[in-house]
Nucleic acid binder design. Structure first.
Length: 311
DNA sequence: GCGACAG
DNA sequence: ATCTTGTCGC
């Protein structure tokens, strides 16, 4: 009996399960909302853009400005990749200081399958949102940044969408690496927007290059020099670029979040927010390349692993 | 030539 | 996600 039991990986990758997962994604996607559906407003600091507060039937925070931004991430044990620590942080939008943090260490029995990250990570994060709701409701985030894509996904329903729909919360998907699902789109579009830049594909690694040379191979070209270069050219090239699929639908945006960073981040709509608003919120959250809510969740989930003697 | 694949 | 070596700048 036990010998015939399929191994976890075989089981998880079975076509039946994947089909079931696809059905769930497509079913949940029917509830997906891709425009601003919240009652708060973006901080006025956002470039004086007229911001249309959304029509929402809940008016708990109608008319208020965005104050609490959530960030979620997981870190894994190097010894046992099934052991993880998940952390949810809440940041004050104006100071970018962490005002609350909840963590859980868990054993994940679902493997990472490309295109199905949510089935591995969403359950823990939903638990954390519940935990937060029960212990510090007044700090419950008005929008959540998720370490993973939203619409930028083969079926248009990545982790950020999944989490947003299940928690009925506005979410923003943040990709730190180029999404394989939009690889061609990304490469083509980025090359055209980031003047003097192109993306080099070599040995299965995608790197942003400058003048066709990988930065660290360029003699005498220092970080400072590049920064100056970027600042000199800053006006002529945009720091944000919309990623459009071949069908013409908008999948997300690539953002050079810091002047000094060659490697962009990828923003996509999760749930109940427009791409334009998502970009604004990400921009106001970027102290470094990685938006602060994600960065803090990353740092603190790693700390959490250490504290528990894992890692 | 193979296989690429968010985290 | 996690592992890596060295390098540069503050």
């Amino acid at each position: 009996m036990s010998t015939e039991e399929p191994s976890a990986s075989e089981n998880q990758n079975s076509p039946q399960l994947l089909n079931q997962w696809i059905e769930i994604q497509e079913s949940l996607k029917k509830q997906l909302i891709t425009d601003d559906r919240f009652s708060w407003k973006l901080p006025p600091i956002c470039n004086g853009q007229t911001y249309e507060g959304a029509q929402d039937d809940r008016d708990s925070d109608r008319g208020k400005f965005l104050k609490y931004i959530g960030g979620a991430d997981l870190s894994f044990s190097k010894a046992d990749p099934s052991i993880a620590c998940a952390t949810l942080v809440v940041l004050d939008a104006s100071t970018l200081e962490v005002v609350h943090e909840v963590s859980n260490t868990v054993e994940l029995r679902v493997p990472y399958v490309p295109g199905f990250l949510a089935f591995r990570e969403a359950p823990v994060l939903l638990e954390l949102l519940e935990k937060l709701k029960n212990t510090a409701l007044q700090l419950y985030p008005q929008v959540l940044m998720v370490d993973g894509n939203g619409l930028l996904h083969p079926r248009g329903f990545g982790l950020a969408c999944h989490l947003g729909v299940l928690a009925d919360l506005p979410t923003i998907g943040i990709g730190k690496n180029v999404s394989p699902f939009s690889y061609d789109v990304t490469r083509r579009m980025l090359a055209s927007v980031l003047k003097n830049y192109c993306l080099c594909h070599s040995s299965n690694t995608l790197k942003v290059c400058y003048n066709n040379c990988q930065l660290h191979h360029v003699d005498g070209l220092t970080q400072h020099g590049v920064r100056q270069l970027l600042e000199a050219n800053g006006d002529s090239c945009s720091d944000v670029f919309t990623l459009m699929g071949d069908s013409g639908s908008t999948l997300g945006a690539a953002l050079r979040s810091t002047v000094g960073s060659l490697k962009p981040i990828f923003i996509s709509v999760g749930h109940r927010i427009s791409l334009a608003s998502a970009i604004e919120i990400v921009k106001l959250s970027c102290r470094y390349r990685i938006p602060e809510p994600i960065r803090q969740a990353d740092i603190r989930s790693r700390d959490c692993l250490r504290k528990h003697g894992l890692s």
